[in-house]
Each structure stands twice: as C-alpha cells, then as structure tokens.
C-alpha cells in the first residue's frame, strides 16, 4: 500500500498520509502522541520518537491506516514544506491559542497548501492548548471564521486534557475517505483527470473569498 494512493471502495484498506504542520512549541508532537499512545508528558512512554506514527482505524466498517508525519515547525525550515506535504491526503495545521504568531503561521501554511495541492488535501486547523483558555490570544470567532473561509475545519484541542483529539482525527479520516472515494469515482469517469488536477498549480489569492470559492470539498464534511 502506498501512502499517497488515497484508497478505494469496498473492503480495500485506505492508507492516508497526514502531515502535521505548525510552529515549534504549539504541541504537534504532544497531540499526535496523545492520539496514538494516549500519553502526555509520560515518563513511561515506550515510543522512542513521535516523528512518524501510525494508527489503524476502522471507520464504518472500512479499515484505515493513518500515517502521521511530523514536521519541523521552526521558521528556518519552512522552505522544506513542499517536501513534507507532498502526496499528503490531509494536513493538520496546529497553532497555540495563546500565541497569535502561531496562528499567523497556520494561515501561511494554508495559503501554501491550497496553492500547491488545491482541494485535494483535507485541511484541519487546530487550536491546541485550550486548557490555557485564560491566556487565549486567538479568538475563537476569528479562528473558526478563518477556517471556514478557506474550506478547512477548525478544532479545539488539548493534548494535556485529551480534549478534542479523537474527534479531530476521526473527522479528518472521514473527510479523507470521502475525498478518496470522490477521486476514485472521478478516475472511473474521466481516466487520468484527477492526477492532472492534483499536480496542476492553482492560483489562490490572499483574499479569503477566493479560497472559499475554490474550496468546499472539505468543509462539506
């Protein structure tokens, strides 16, 4: 099973690549560790690394293999982005609700992803650390409004409290399955149409309106 092949119909196992993007210190690693190992700052974690984790799911009778790719979030590695998110089925864009800059970073990622991958990729914008609600610097309305405007879904999570994480991944998987099924149907109809559209470069304006017009596939899920 290759990562990129989004899957197919029937009993076939879906294999999805999900890339974790976001500034350093927003809790990408904690998020994925909490999801895959149900651990948070645990001294007894058996996992030696949280860069590449996999999770097997069964969603409405269909098996899903989720490969979660962690990426370096430091600004100086931003240029490596295209290598990271190439062939991804989904992207989880994490920001820290107490850190306005990290949300700005997410916006940059969204722009880039939409530009490079179009609507093929399911975007999740995740406001992490909701346990620090008192120190919130990114308003809920702003974040959710932005997510909707770019055809992404917004989630509030806390790796520390294990809040919202399960829902986030489950939802993402369902959306990726829908996208994969749609792609499958498209393939059935018009041969290699989907591949060209995927590789094609879309010009996305900075204006959220344009992005909304372009998006829609993901937000509908």
């Amino acid at each position: 099973f290759t990562m990129a092949a989004g899957g197919g119909a029937g009993n076939k196992t879906y294999s999805f690549k999900v890339v974790l993007l976001g500034e350093g210190c927003v809790g990408k690693t904690s998020l994925v560790l909490r999801y895959c190992e149900n651990k948070f700052n645990d001294k007894h974690i058996t996992t030696l690394q949280a860069s590449f984790l996999t999770k097997k799911l069964n969603i409405t009778g269909k098996r899903v293999n989720l490969a979660i790719w962690d990426t370096a979030g430091q600004e100086r590695f931003h240029a490596l982005g295209p290598i990271y998110y190439r062939d991804s089925n989904g992207a989880i864009l994490v920001y820290d609700i107490t850190d306005e800059d990290s949300f700005q970073k997410v916006k940059n990622w969204v722009k880039e992803l939409r530009k490079m991958l179009g609507n093929e990729i399911c975007l999740c914008i995740v406001g992490n650390k909701v346990d620090l609600e008192k120190e919130r610097h990114v308003s809920v309305e702003e974040a959710e409004g932005y997510a909707e405007s770019v055809g992404a879904k917004h989630y509030h999570t806390s790796a520390k409290l294990n809040k919202g994480i399960e829902e986030l991944f489950l939802d993402l998987c369902k959306r990726m399955m829908e996208t994969a099924q749609a792609e499958e149907r498209a393939k059935g109809n018009g041969a290699s149409q989907s591949t060209t559209s995927r590789r094609g470069v879309q010009i996305v304006d900075d204006d959220p309106q344009a992005a909304t017009a372009a998006g829609g596939c993901c937000s509908s899920a």
Binding site: Q49, A50, S51, A72
Partner: peptide
C-alpha cells in the same frame, strides 16, 4: 539519532522539531 535524542531528554519524546536540526 532518534534513540540518542530520546536518551538525552527524558521529559519528552523527540519529534521532528528536535530531529531535523
């Protein structure tokens, strides 16, 4: 590298942020 990183820092599990540099 990952093994060495996880040895060095007992408090957390190394992720890509730690690994890439």
């Amino acid at each position: 590298i990952m093994n060495l990183l996880s040895l060095a820092n007992e408090d957390s599990v190394p992720g890509a942020d730690d690994f890439v540099p």
